[in-house]
Design a protein around this nucleic acid. Structure first.
Ligand code: MN
Ligand code: MN
Ligand code: MN
Ligand code: MN
Lengths: 222, 222
DNA sequence: CGGTGTTGTTAGTCGAGGCTAATATTCGCA
DNA sequence: TGCGAATATTAGCCTCGACTAACAACACCG
């Protein structure tokens, strides 16, 4: 089957849902892609005919090995482009995702390899997302969200979800980027904000925000 | 009307034909685009409905002001991308055209402006083609082909047609690039090669090649 | 003057990728 | 227990952009 831009986007979404443990169903795909359910039904039929996805026992869809390989190629192009745009062109980190979402479908193998070499074969994009290698194994596992970190712990941010530009700008503004350590403070009950200290300054982060930040506890507050 | 990638390519081809003084007809467009005549007929109908082209008295099609503006936007993106790929990414000059042919349809205004600024607002692409400004007048006129230069003259190369990668590689190999001066030697009769001296070395160039090189006579051989 | 290309259009078809409306199923909850 | 909401599919339609087959209008040439 011919991997058009639309096909690539569907495969990528299914890949993201599956690797986050969320079910890849008609409705979740439709919501994430901003498309009607019948459109997804029709596309899934084409993807099945092309042996890129299959119905997986429980609930949703799964990628076949061919579908996963294709999805990884698109994810690789996306994250390489984000890195390239940020590091070489100077595009701010809250804009790179949107640009890469389009360019990922127009990048040739040849140019991908040139960009990869120019960047020195990077392994993480500006949001901390791992860049799948051209061949060989790839680990997409997400670390725990900051939401899950216990009070009094020290937390190292590894990945920041890149889908909301406004959130990204805010987070960058208070110094929250991959690689940064934060001290986890009090948790306000009933869905209230979580207090964290970054660079000596305290901030109250709402749940929508703390769910975007993933990483690992690396000790206790000094 | 929605300017899809296909529409952009049609407008660009019509623009190129018209500015070279060649008629923009169904068959010339079909040949250049590698597409059937009926496909062109249908697309031209859509372009007319969208007020992007109109039948021009003699022979072919003409761009409306809206169609020309759209064509210039695509040409600008194409040539900016070629320049960017060559200067920043290090893509060889015989490959940039093919890559830009695809990327030109995926470049946002925002990114276009960043690249333009990063390059210092270039006015010529790697082949010497003028980059249309974002607004304001643009001169696309082609200088004379080397074919027309008289024996014994000194010729300054301004533009090199970028459509044939093999020819570009060959030309670069013997030092023929925009800005270079050549001494025009004997012209072999009956379509035979033209002798030119570049960098002190004599080369015999066939007609297909001398037609790709455009520029101006800047004096006589010293 | 009568073929024979070349050119352009129409008619009809196709696949991709979207849409709405209608129709099951199933699930949660009063 | 039964009703409404969510979920998925089908049917039917649309646009875009390609294709082939067929046909008309000309031009050129022997
Ligand atoms: Mn995309
Ligand atoms: Mn990212
Ligand atoms: Mn193009
Ligand atoms: Mn060029």
């Amino acid at each position: 089957m011919q991997a058009t831009g639309a096909v690539e986007d569907y495969l990528k979404i299914i890949y993201h849902l599956v690797t986050k443990g969320e079910p890849a169903t008609t409705s979740t795909i439709a919501r994430r892609l901003g498309v009607s359910s019948p459109s997804v039904s029709a596309m899934v039929k084409r993807l099945e005919a092309g042996a890129l996805v299959e119905r997986s026992g429980e609930g949703g869809l799964a990628l076949t090995s061919g579908g996963k390989a294709e999805a990884l190629r698109v994810v690789r192009r996306h994250r390489l482009l984000e890195t390239f745009l940020a590091e070489v062109v100077g595009v701010p980190w809250d804009e790179v995702h949107e640009e890469a979402e389009v360019l990922e479908h127009a990048l040739s193998d040849r140019l991908e390899q040139r960009i990869d070499a120019l960047l020195g074969h990077p392994v993480r994009d500006p949001h901390g997302d791992p860049i799948p290698p051209r061949t060989g194994p790839h680990d997409e596992r997400w670390a725990d969200p900051l939401t899950a970190a216990p009070t009094g712990s020290r937390f190292r941010i590894e990945r920041v979800s890149d889908r909301d530009p406004d959130a990204l700008r805010y987070l960058a503004g208070i110094g929250l980027r991959p690689g940064v350590h934060v001290d986890v403070g009090a948790r306000t009950p009933f869905g209230g904000p979580l207090w964290v200290t970054v660079d000596g300054t305290e901030h109250a982060l709402g749940l929508p925000l703390t769910d975007l930040l993933h990483g690992a506890v690396v000790g206790t507050r000094p």
